[in-house]
Design a binder for these strands. Structure first.
Lengths: 179, 179
DNA sequence: AAGGCTATGTAGCGCCCGCTACAAGAGGAA
DNA sequence: TTCCTCTTGTAGCGGGCGCTACATAGCCTT
């Protein structure tokens, strides 16, 4: 069967979603895609562009997952809106993205090519999704969505390093969550 | 001159603060410390415990930097408190910690030994520092500090991936920052 | 002085890395 | 048929990795 970027990317994405980006080297990636490192280089040119295209593909996967989760009804309050997105993020199919996410943020900070753009695209998409969920009668939907966004990402990071309780108490004190 | 963990750690820390944890392999680390990979293994046993001890040392460095920044006077308002810690984080001597931070978070999420504990310790320390900065008349200093903490970390992450403006607008909408 | 323990240098092991050289099969174009 | 291009397999290169074997120089004890 003919190989191509398009047929390879889904299998490569599945592999990094399971095993992370850090240790993603050509031979394991190739094995996961049912081919050889030789062919990965042939189809992508080199590893750097492979990773760049892979991150772009994963960003699209993430968009698709958010689209699939997009209920057509808005939330009634900011509290409900926050509760919804937190529930969305705790779904198992989103967990893989979460684990990968910090690899991407670290890469973006260090300036590794492709990481920053993919991360920005994923956050932009999440912001759009969040704005669509904001209550219809919210006095400031744009600002409110960005406010929720900042709290959510903060809570996410604190949870990642064992300060989930800190984040929870922060949400409570903000009035965005109820005990 | 006699080498030891204690004399080596500062030089190793300086190296990873400059070059990151990702590509920190024994030979470059040894060169930065003026010795050989052979001696790093001799003094630390293996790379894993070296990294664990190094992260612990860096967490102490971070604590020390916060202590040095700790003015004895509290802020007058939450807004001022937030402005202070944001100013603190933008100091050049803190930038190196910030770049390293996402490596640590990614490692903590992936379960690499030592990363989680170091990250948690650094966040705990920052929370303590923040509580000490809260206004004396604040109705809920503990909750407020955790609230600020969540917003700060969220803003930090968004800024890391090119969404600094999103975070800024989020801070404005929260009422914690003034335009 | 003799022996042992600690600290260090030199060399190299086996392994994985990204990548490449080279040959060959497949299929279309002349 | 005869080429020629696209795709793939096999093998391997140079280099970095964590780590180890071995020798040795210096010091401390007896």
């Amino acid at each position: 069967m003919q190989l191509s970027r398009e047929t390879l990317l889904p299998k490569l994405a599945a592999h990094v979603l399971e095993h992370g980006l850090g240790g993603a080297s050509l031979r394991p990636l190739a094995k996961a895609a049912g081919t050889s490192d030789r062919m990965l280089i042939y189809h992508f040119g080199n590893k750097e562009t492979l990773i760049t295209e892979l991150l772009g593909y994963i960003a699209e996967l993430y968009s698709g997952a958010l689209d699939a989760a997009l209920g057509s009804d808005r939330a009634a309050t900011r509290q409900e809106c926050l509760a919804r997105i937190l529930a969305e993020g705790s779904k198992p199919e989103m967990q893989a993205f979460l684990v990968l996410w910090w690899d991407i943020v670290a890469g973006a900070t260090r300036g590794v090519p492709g990481y920053h753009d993919a991360a920005q695209a994923m956050m932009t998409r999440q912001l759009v999704w969040l704005e669509g969920q904001m209550p219809a009668d919210d006095p400031d939907p744009a600002g409110g969505a960005r406010y929720l966004m900042t709290m959510i990402e903060g809570a996410l990071m604190l949870s990642a390093v064992g300060h989930g309780d800190t984040a929870q108490q922060g949400l409570l004190a903000s009035g965005l969550a109820a005990s």
